[in-house]
């Protein structure tokens, strides 16, 4: 059932930009339209590209913010979130802890 909602209405998570828009909703309390506009502007893409795999797949790899397929050596997890926090200009709790642990 969750997958049905994801397919019917979801943004596609790390397959596209769903995680980035979700971060803006959670951390900056942005409504969906504002969150999408912020992410699109930050990434330098059109709004429509936020859910366009053709645009987002390579862009995510280029930015090092995690890709849906497993690219060997490419950032995922906390390393990708560190870049996401920097890219979006947000404070992610787990990233702050990680940074404190590595002395960054």
């Amino acid at each position: 059932m969750h997958v049905a909602h994801i397919f019917a209405s979801g943004m596609g998570g790390i397959r596209t930009s769903g995680d980035l828009v979700a971060w803006m909703q959670l951390i900056k309390k942005m409504k969906i339209a504002e969150a999408k506009q912020y992410v699109a502007k930050t990434l330098g893409v059109e709004l429509g590209d936020l859910t366009n795999e053709e645009a987002m797949r390579q862009l995510r790899e280029d930015l090092g913010i995690g890709t849906i397929t497993s690219v060997t050596g490419s950032p995922k997890g906390i390393r990708a979130k560190l870049k996401i926090a920097d890219l979006l200009g947000i404070t992610i709790n787990s990233v702050e802890l990680f940074k404190s642990q590595i002395g960054a």
Binding site: H2, A8, S9, G10, V21, A22, Q25, I32, G48, T51
Partner: peptide, 21 residues
């Protein structure tokens, strides 16, 4: 059988323990 929003209308799907399913 299945319907969906139009491209550009997508929203965020949060969950309540879906991975636990």
């Amino acid at each position: 059988r299945v319907v969906s929003v139009a491209p550009g209308e997508e929203i965020i799907v949060t969950d309540d323990g879906c991975s636990m399913s």
